[in-house]
Design a protein around this nucleic acid. Sequence first.
DNA 1: TTGTATGCGTTATCAG
DNA 2: CTGATAACGCATACAA
Lengths: 360, 360
Amino acid sequence: MTRSSRGGMPSVVKVAQQAGVSTATAARALGSYGSVSEKARQRVLAAAEALSYRPNGLARSMITGLTRTIGMVVPDIENPFFSRAVRGMADVAHEQGSQVLVLNTDEDVESELQALTVLTERRVDGLVIAPTDAADRSALEGVIKSGIPVVLLDRTVRGLAADSVGIDNRAAAREATQRLIDLGHQDIALLTGAPAELQPHLMRPGLRGVERLTGTTVGTRAAGYRDALTAAGINLRTELVSAEGFHRQDAAKAIRRLMSLSRPPTAVLALDSLLALGVLQGLRELRLRCPDDVSLIGFDDADWAVAISPPLTVVAQSVYEMGKVAGQLLLERVAGSDRAPVRCRLPVRLIERESAGRRR
Amino acid sequence: MTRSSRGGMPSVVKVAQQAGVSTATAARALGSYGSVSEKARQRVLAAAEALSYRPNGLARSMITGLTRTIGMVVPDIENPFFSRAVRGMADVAHEQGSQVLVLNTDEDVESELQALTVLTERRVDGLVIAPTDAADRSALEGVIKSGIPVVLLDRTVRGLAADSVGIDNRAAAREATQRLIDLGHQDIALLTGAPAELQPHLMRPGLRGVERLTGTTVGTRAAGYRDALTAAGINLRTELVSAEGFHRQDAAKAIRRLMSLSRPPTAVLALDSLLALGVLQGLRELRLRCPDDVSLIGFDDADWAVAISPPLTVVAQSVYEMGKVAGQLLLERVAGSDRAPVRCRLPVRLIERESAGRRR
DNA sequence: TTGTATGCGTTATCAG
DNA sequence: CTGATAACGCATACAA
């Protein structure tokens, strides 16, 4: 008793009957390939119109081997960073006649694995993924080996033969930290948004070896933060580095903890816009003012960044562009390109507004 | 030279061969239906594992008539309102083994039509749509008639036999306006975010008949705004009603125009969070303070609403819930329910924070 | 230009 | 419990 079984939608066969031609001719007329006499074409088109015929994409995909579907695996579509990237991706895909299937992982490895299974079974033409920090490389390798091209977004996976799109995280974090140092700050907190489980790996004395932290975005940015402090001869205090979760509330809690330290930070670098929001909220609750009491630089130029008081100083990534480039790289491969994997790093801009001020 | 033609993925046939059984047995073992001897089952599963077999969802869909795909047509996935609704939808869908295909319309009727075509051809099991104000009812009727259940989200289409999920827009707008009146405001601007084309239809003297404005959200809310003013005996000034586009910049521009009136508003009601953001930004640029110079109430409790200064007073909708309910209603129908269409109105809450203050 | 016949990878039916 | 075989709807090689 499925929909199809109650003989719902008309097929090419029905159209052909109605038009009094063979199915092949009907198919040719509808698909506008091969050659069809003008007369036949007209009749077929008329019949199709009359029956309000719509080709069955499934059947077509079985033949062509193309589903015109791109899978996109992200932590959370609600996160403005990813919804913007998805939009960029969707726009290029749409331009080329493809659609995007989005799956959320909530930074959960299990969900990520399941997403890969689903997308494989759906025979997507390719997929873009922002892998979890703990991503299972072998699973992704399996996908690639099965013939589905993969593009890594925002994050990388060491040793995976796939294109990737992102920014130079180390340089970006270094630059932002440097700016805070230039403003006279010495006690600069780093809100990573990493889960607490990562804490022991991340917070070794002097942040030693974080850059090798399985190539995570967090690790790489932490390395940039360390670079800047080291270059300025500032002693890194690991209690100023936070790995307490990526939700806004986590950041609010983190800033409360940080401000209660005997020597609290005078500036904060937050690794994404939600974390920055949490800091702002936490600061409000503590009745502290920004930038008078605490300076703040966030990652990602959220749409509210310019509308709030004070306007937020940010490290802006071209997120829409990132999605677009990911889409382009992917569609090239879907179209058959087999060039060596590229690693595309988009430029960032430090947009100075008013949330980061000179130390008082 | 498509991927499938280069003999990539193994099929049931291959698995059956490898296991030394018939395809039927293999299929039964893999699909775990019918009855298979334990011995055969083991061998099939082992063969599948060895070949890293993944069932082809396309072929399955052709038979079952179910694609396990829900289409979602929204103006813009980047808009936090819709990305949250999509998340709610995706979560229930995923629970029941379905995925969501999201298409953006940018409030463009043409794109909307095309989205419907795409989703029909893909044989989605059902679709959720937040139709454009100028939505083409016949197109949606066609979709429904073809057997694809439809749920309307956030907005309605007059006379369409489909479920719909939203809020009581008229009451919500009335309540918010009423609150501003209670705070002593008389000159209250309404930022609708409607396109300029709608202006002549919307801004008739006294906002007469807006409630019949093809049942649009904007029209209904405008009616609520009018209701409150009328009840309080306040004369409605149409120059305080804005229909100048839905982007943030449009709102910023609108507030500049409004504040330059000889008798500028002392309070503003913005019909979504992006518009509220634009107002805030415009106010900043004009060096006006909120709520001291202008009070503001916005629709939708954005995540930044509580983090900014002053925290924004909002009419909060349960957006995630809306997406979820839409998904539930839709999946019920996909499962075969043929109950009469329901119109589900979720409650709203006026969350009083600090952006709306007593008139000075 | 047109028609016939075959295949894509499943599920489902019916004998055995 | 198992195996052969027919759909599903379209594209396409080949024949007419």
